[in-house]
């Protein structure tokens, strides 16, 4: 596979670079000071990227009374997972979770299918006015009519307070189309030609040849798309003004974060006893932290495995078509 070969090459280059650098100069005092400062800086900066998540996490699993008194700073105490279970009692959160998950799945699948297909079609030189239509798509990346005009357009199309506003406008993603098109162009043309000689149609070639061969880039595009859908906040904010049940998780989180200390308003308490129990168990700080945690956990779980796809994405973007 070309992919692994490229990666091997990169690793080898990196090693060589380090080796040559190690032997190329003698360590001077200035170098040692620089190295220490360098490691220190990157260590601290990395810590600043990890610590907030860790801090949120330990606060959600520690004894809530200690959390309320601000006693949990570096390590958890009185570990329990009750907070996560109690989230089922938070108003509308379940809905928001379902909306976010389904839009991520459907939105990403449709976007990837469309991106692959359009990316393939625009590589075909014989298409009627190909370059015009390709530009027609690409220009939308640089130009938009503005927030209000887009909003008015959605109103006109009846897409406000409608779940479909999460899915349909995102299907055609110009940046991803450029990535896929560039990738498909790098696939040797002979493969396709021989398929056409055997009488295959464009659809067959796409399904049997292009789709499997462009899987690496499609994975990259899919992950970018999924992260975008999961994090999406603006469309929910703009278009769901009268449909609270269709708000995304990020929008819900935003609302909860800005809510003052009235916890009762957030809970769908089913009786005085239950209310008292939750008052005991949860406090505003903890519930905010817990909801933040469940919004960030999917990203943190997926990220380490997908990192190379992310990096490939930005590299391909730099090459641009």
């Amino acid at each position: 596979m070309a992919k692994t070969a490229q990666e091997k090459l990169d690793a080898k280059r990196e090693k060589e670079y380090n080796k040559t650098h190690k032997h190329m100069y003698k360590l001077k005092p200035g170098d040692i000071v620089f190295d220490i400062l360098n490691y220190l800086f990157f260590g601290l900066f990395t810590l600043s990227c990890i610590f907030p998540f860790y801090y949120l996490f330990i606060n959600t699993i520690s004894d809530n009374k200690l959390v309320q008194r601000g006693m949990i700073n570096f390590y958890p105490r009185g570990i329990h997972f009750q907070n996560y279970l109690s989230l089922t009692n938070v108003n509308d959160l379940g809905n928001a979770f379902i909306v976010s998950i389904t839009r991520t799945i459907f939105g990403t699948v449709l976007m990837v299918l469309a991106t692959a297909f359009v990316g393939y079609v625009v590589t075909k030189q014989e298409m009627w006015h190909r370059s015009f239509w390709y530009r027609f798509i690409v220009i939308t990346m640089y130009f938009n009519a503005g927030l209000i005009a887009t909003y008015l357009n959605m109103v006109m199309l009846g897409l406000t307070n409608n779940y479909m506003v999460y899915i349909i406008p995102g299907i055609v993603a110009p940046y991803n189309i450029i990535l896929v098109k560039t990738y498909i162009e790098s696939i040797p043309g002979e493969l396709e030609e021989s398929a056409f000689i055997d009488g295959a149609s464009y659809f067959t070639v796409f399904r049997k040849l292009i789709w499997p061969l462009s899987k690496p880039i499609l994975a990259t595009v899919a992950i970018f798309g999924a992260v975008g859908h999961w994090n999406s906040f603006q469309d929910s904010l703009l278009y769901m003004t009268n449909a609270p049940s269709l708000m995304t998780l990020q929008h819900r989180l935003y609302i909860y974060l800005n809510q003052s200390s009235n916890i009762a308003s957030m809970m769908n308490t089913s009786g005085a006893g239950a209310a008292a129990q939750f008052e005991n168990l949860l406090n505003v700080k903890v519930i905010k932290y817990t909801i933040s945690m469940i919004s960030v956990i999917p990203i943190l779980l997926v990220y380490p495995f997908m990192q190379r796809f992310f990096e490939k994405g930005i590299m391909l973007g730099a090459v641009k078509g």
Binding site: V122, M127, W128, W133, F136, I137, F143, N144, A149, T150
Partner: peptide, 30 residues
């Protein structure tokens, strides 16, 4: 002809881009 075939395959997506990226310009009349 394959040039039209390809164009028609592209058309639905071109239409989507038209509706969501170019049609908002019509909102400028406000």
């Amino acid at each position: 002809e394959s040039k039209y075939k390809l164009f028609l395959m592209f058309l639905p997506f071109g239409a989507l881009a038209g509706i969501f990226c170019y049609l908002p310009l019509w909102g400028w009349r406000y």
